[in-house]
Design a protein around this nucleic acid. Sequence first.
DNA 1: TTGACTCTATAACGACCGGTCTATATTAGC
DNA 2: GCTAATATAGACCGGTCGTTATAGAGTCAA
Lengths: 188, 188
Amino acid sequence: MANAAKHKDALVRTAMRLFRQQGYASTGLQQILTESGAPKGSLYHYFPDGKEQLAEAAVRLAGKLMGEMLAAHAERAATPAAFAKAYCSTMAGWMKGSEFRSGCPIATTMLETAPHSQALTKAGAEVIDHWIDIIAPVFRRAGSTAAHARSAAQQLIAAVEGALVIARIRRSATPLLDVARSFEAAVP
Amino acid sequence: MANAAKHKDALVRTAMRLFRQQGYASTGLQQILTESGAPKGSLYHYFPDGKEQLAEAAVRLAGKLMGEMLAAHAERAATPAAFAKAYCSTMAGWMKGSEFRSGCPIATTMLETAPHSQALTKAGAEVIDHWIDIIAPVFRRAGSTAAHARSAAQQLIAAVEGALVIARIRRSATPLLDVARSFEAAVP
DNA sequence: TTGACTCTATAACGACCGGTCTATATTAGC
DNA sequence: GCTAATATAGACCGGTCGTTATAGAGTCAA
């Protein structure tokens, strides 16, 4: 990768990581610059609208990467319960590997900035829609109508989001495992 | 109420509201002072350890007030599903009444500060335990074992937490209504 | 060679940050 | 009423914040 694209990419990835672990407002640009190794002039060169624009790019990248993980599981899962189990296991693994700091890669930023920041609110909503688009076919294959599949997908995402919040507060992966188990009980 | 207690209370309540709506790090002390009407000297008088100590008081107050709401519903609910419905309806009402800004009164702060701030992490964990203590008897009355009742209570809290996150991002109360409906389908 | 473009380097800016501190005002208790 | 304790008022502090502006370096096509 050329140096140019390298710095832009590093900025977005570093921002994504830091926003996830400590939130948007408490992550200063200087920290992002220091940890990414990107030059300060480049930050405004690539993101002329500043921090918010960088955050939007970070939210969209996070949504894309999560989407790739979800798609991989969706392809392999024979049932919604198997999918839920894989999804929860992956999230539990990330949580444990990050000392319960890396939960949902967009939730903290969204809770701080939506609906005040329109750009971020829009990006966050599109990310959720994207994840629903990926997950709904799992439910469709199990016989759900299109509408129910989308609702079920949203419910699964919400369940995992909530479990991630509780997991972070209680420093335990149990809430995630509980989601998988409840799903198996409800939709085998 | 005497003026003295009035200012301390106003600080905590204002902090609680602002942290809930916009997060911890992006809420400056000056805004809390301005909106609460409390004198700056009083802030450090009552909270000599500063912002973090104020936030801890805010988290604990939020937990207590939510606990009172949950207890009122728990007393009246004949079934876990009825309880879940009441809980979700109340949260949906708060969300709609605040333009989808007032979700869980502690989640944003906790996602920003746990586990980095030990005081806040501890306070948040105790708040969740407190809520579980209040909700578990609902499941016990429906026949669950003590262990299962606590797990079910945690799962309901997690489900509502996640629904609140999605509700805020998508500016819709549907995720909360979905939680109530799913609970009714699973545990009538 | 020249000018345009891309990217970097960095000083500087005004605003805001949480916190400190001292003098003063108010309250509580006797 | 008096004294000690509690609470208030607000100026000030050093630091950080996100952003701006400008100069410079390198590349490339005409």
